[in-house]
């Protein structure tokens, strides 16, 4: 049986009112925020299921926007995130999609653009008690929780790329806890999600980025 920490029972510390609709929403957006390299210029949130039905009463919108500015679940600024985002010059919008029902009840799509024009689309799900997972990156189905030190490598689907990346990590004594690979099409864009017990340093990332088949990386600290 998986270990349950006392802080999963007495916790999380969070801005109310709902662990799934508020704390979970903040965590999803914060994970997406960690995946961006630069300051965010604009973000569009599309809400599904229960998120779409009840987001106003649960402050899901404020929590999502707060998470998108890096606020943790217990950051009181979440309550004022609209005002703060406006002051920061971040454009934001919320769309409730009540037509699409083939999704987890608490799902959100986030279309993010940073100040350099780089775009990123992430889908997140709040699965209860504040726990979350990301299930799509740029439309590709993935699974990612952010519970570990993580590295997302976007690369061409080509023989030898995965082994090269894993050996880069091994050379730097990073032990891979989980490795998952996804791709759009054969020979197309592929995603490698590496989760590790040890912190993955920028130095390792630089090494991985020297690989000509690697298009982009996202280093996500725990």
């Amino acid at each position: 049986m998986a270990f349950i920490s006392v802080f999963e029972v007495i916790g999380p510390n969070m801005v109310g009112p709902s662990s799934s609709h508020t704390a979970g929403a903040a965590s999803i957006a914060r994970l997406a925020w960690k995946m961006t390299h630069e300051k965010i210029k604009s973000v569009k949130f599309t809400l599904y299921g229960s998120f779409a039905q009840t987001y106003k009463g649960h402050g899901t919108d404020r929590a999502l926007l707060g998470g998108m500015m890096g606020f943790e679940t217990d950051d009181e600024r979440i309550r004022d995130s609209f005002e703060i985002a406006e002051k920061e010059g971040i454009e934001f919008s919320f769309v409730a999609n009540t037509i699409e029902t083939e999704v987890h009840p608490n799902t959100v799509d986030m279309e993010i653009e940073d100040v350099t024009g780089r775009k990123l689309t992430v889908r997140g799900e709040s699965i209860g008690g504040g726990k979350v997972r990301l299930t799509r990156i740029n439309g590709v189905k993935v699974l990612f929780t952010g519970e570990y030190h993580s590295l997302i490598v976007i690369h061409r689907d080509h023989p030898g790329v995965i082994s090269k990346v894993t050996s880069n990590l091994g050379e730097c004594h990073v032990n891979i806890a989980y490795l998952r690979v996804y791709r759009e099409t054969k020979g197309g864009i592929a995603y490698m999600i590496i989760e590790s017990d040890e912190e993955i340093t920028q130095e390792i990332v630089d090494k991985i980025e020297r690989n000509p088949f690697v298009k982009d990386t996202m280093l996500i600290k725990k």
Binding site: V9, I10, G11, P12, N13, M14, V15, G16, P17, S18, S19, T22, A23, G59, R62, D74, E76, I78, R79, G129, G130
Partner: peptide, 10 residues
């Protein structure tokens, strides 16, 4: 939307 500790839930 104040800060609380879920124990065990919000």
């Amino acid at each position: 939307m104040g800060v609380i500790v879920a124990a065990p839930t919000a």
